[in-house]
Amino acid sequence: MPASDIPVPQAADDALAAVVALRRLADQLEDAAVEQAMRAGWSWPQVAEALGVTRQAVHRKHAKRLIDAGVNLRRRSP
């Protein structure tokens, strides 16, 4: 949607709380999206590039959780 359609909170406390809530939602979305991609056979470098972060960062943040959850992780990119 165009920027002008995004509501801007009038009160400072609402605006600041929206930042906190969006960060939290983004974290939850990242957990779910990375798992979805890895289950679909994406490689770590692909996921990292799509997220715009280094592969070390994405690996450090998600590898252990996904291994514990039994997700079959690809070792190498094609």
């Binding site: 509501p7 801007v8 909170p9 709380a17 969006l22 979305l29 779910a32 959780r65 959850a69």
Partner: peptide, 14 residues
């Protein structure tokens, strides 16, 4: 307050 709803995301729970 910024027009976002959790209900609009249908991703599985991690």
């Amino acid at each position: 307050t910024v027009g976002v709803s959790r209900a609009s995301f249908d991703l599985p729970r991690p």
